[in-house]
Design a protein around this nucleic acid. Structure first.
Lengths: 347, 347
DNA sequence: CGTTAGCACTCTATCTCTCTGAGTGCTAAT
DNA sequence: ATTAGCACTCAGAGAGATAGAGTGCTAACG
């Protein structure tokens, strides 16, 4: 693999991304920074095809990058564009400032991304995993009916109705509320575990068996808290995208379960994943560009786009990168990005 | 329009629904309960075409029902199949029992419908519109931070965080909570209005200006309650349906706004609507089969399918009908359907 | 020895032409 | 009023024919 071959591969990807048509040797030879004849390029392209970086839709057509080709392009060959200052300013305006609620911040980023990229945006909220329980309330709302309210230091609120087998007296409710406050107040959401609740069930059962549904209710709510919420917005953009199978897109929109887990397990820094390398999003020929934002130095959530594999990586990656950095800063109460830019990482 | 012509129309619809091909006079003449020659049928079909009940894709093809033809068929000619007991039992199992949460009940019905009909299912949740406010709580959760909790008699719970400009004293909070309880407790969700809240803002402002964000918060929550949520599931089925225009389906999936209103304004009982008669769902050649389920005797939500106009009405209508009846029963805590079957109504 | 010009070859996409058969409308007979 | 018979129509399938983009290979070149 000499330098020229890499240059040709990059040119093929660029050209294919630009036009959407299979790229022939002639059109490559006419590019500015290529100074060899089409015959030479043909030879090189044949090698690139043998190595699995390019492929032909049919014998007499031009070449198209394989996912392996894209991978090499993204990881080694491409240099992302610089984001001009005015673009940054525009993004800043769309995002909001440090007083914007976190949820809205992420939402705004998603909107910005769909508008700019014409792809679907994927965001996960800043999971309250790293926050602590600040309040637990149990409110009687009817005959043997109670509502549990769980509030975290980051402002997440979860509620759940709960039916008991008996009505609780004022003292019993007081006892329970106190017990719970004592055991959960200030506990990190991430530290909440099934075992912990099992112990609590055992403890309150000694006092009164019928309280255990309440503990179980709280346990379920805490699971909700630990779970990160994934939102895909602008997914209609994918439907108007020719190279994606509409059936697969619709199926994906309806159940996007696998993605959440994948995002959580991803490395930090900008990531590009292809559906062919990964079975969490089964849209053929699609790619996922994501990055994680941080809050208080810890990874809090993800942000990115899903689009066709043939997407302008050079252009989009800087947007995703800038948005995650900016969101991280805003969530920490800074108005400007402080730390150094992150590197592109292998998957 | 003599009897034989109606019989022929019904036969054409049945045959077209079965095969999907334009129906010729010969295939009709070969049916069991038709005892006239193809020439006679040809004459009758020509009349039916002139009257607008049938049409020809092209001169030398068979006939296809127009939407007017379907309309007559559905309203007058067709006799829906009876749902066999085992099918009913299967549906019962898929739905759940009276302890199944309402939301899940409706969800399960949607899943059942998509599986059985291979069409998209449309459901609206049991809007809490007809229930009353049973409890309003304001809970301090931090510096100038409060959580509002709104609970209805039907068990819907909504919450919202609210930031005030000052911290409230214990008395102030008590005053406010009492005031709200007095004004909202027992009020029907449907009766809550902007003006009502405007008045309340004015009243509490006299006492303390900074309380108004709380009232506004409650107002927003009440709007949430009034809103009915429309869910379309299994819409990928529509994409694999040849007679529907994929573009239109995609557009519909993107914004299904009009449908919600239409469902709300619909009559009770089984309804069949065609896109050509209606502009709330602009998928050409599609039809909507819905019925409303009831809760406590009042219409609570809708349930049905969207599919091609060429759909097996005889088969599907009983399913939709049974499901709405069963859901109505389950929501009222009965395990079996009690009241008489409803009639088919004109739109 | 790498590079290039030249050329034969391949394969898709498109157009036209023809043929077939299902289905019709009309007419005359029953 | 119904039916058999017949000429007519038209979409769709299949068969060439053609054009054009792009390739692989070979032989010549610096």
């Amino acid at each position: 693999m000499d330098d020229r071959k890499l240059k040709i591969l990059a040119a093929v990807v660029d050209e294919y991304v630009r036009t959407g048509e299979p790229v022939g040797s002639k059109s490559i030879s006419q590019l500015e920074n290529i100074n060899v004849s089409s015959a030479t390029i043909r030879n090189d392209m044949a090698v690139l095809e043998q190595l699995g970086y390019l492929e032909q839709p049919h014998t007499s057509a031009g070449r198209v990058p394989t996912f392996k080709g894209y991978r090499l392009y993204i990881d080694e060959l491409m240099t992302p564009h610089d984001l001009p200052e005015e673009e940054k300013r525009m993004l800043d305006e769309m995002l909001g400032d440090k007083d914007t609620p976190e949820e809205l911040l992420v939402q705004n980023a998603a909107t910005a991304l769909t508008e700019i990229t014409h792809c679907a945006a994927v965001v996960t909220n800043a999971a309250p995993r790293f926050s602590v329980i600040s309040k637990v309330e149990v409110i009687p709302t009817g005959k043997r009916l109670y509502v549990i309210l769980l509030i975290t230091s980051s402002g997440s609120i979860k509620n759940k109705a709960c039916r008991l087998e008996f009505d609780l007296s004022h003292e019993q409710l007081d006892f329970f509320t106190h017990y719970i406050e004592e055991n959960l107040s200030g506990v990190s959401v991430d530290d909440l575990s099934e075992e912990m609740f099992d112990k609590m069930v055992a403890a309150v059962s000694a006092y009164m068996v019928s309280l255990s549904p309440l503990v179980k209710g709280i346990c379920e709510l805490s699971e909700d808290l630990r779970q990160q919420e994934l939102t895909v917005s602008g997914s209609e953009k994918l439907l108007s995208c020719e190279e994606l199978d509409k059936m697969e897109v619709v199926k994906f929109i309806e159940h996007k379960d696998g993605l959440s887990e994948m995002l959580e397990n991803a490395f930090s820094g900008i990531q590009v994943k292809f559906s062919s390398e990964n079975d969490s999003f089964a849209i053929g020929n699609s790619s996922l560009i994501v990055s994680k934002y941080r809050k208080g130095g810890k990874e809090a959530g993800s942000l990115g786009i899903i689009g066709p594999m043939r997407v302008d990586y050079k252009k989009i990656i800087p947007y995703v990168e800038y948005l995650t950095q900016k969101i991280s800063a805003l969530m920490d109460g800074d108005d400007d990005i402080i730390n150094a830019p992150s590197d592109i990482q292998e998957p």
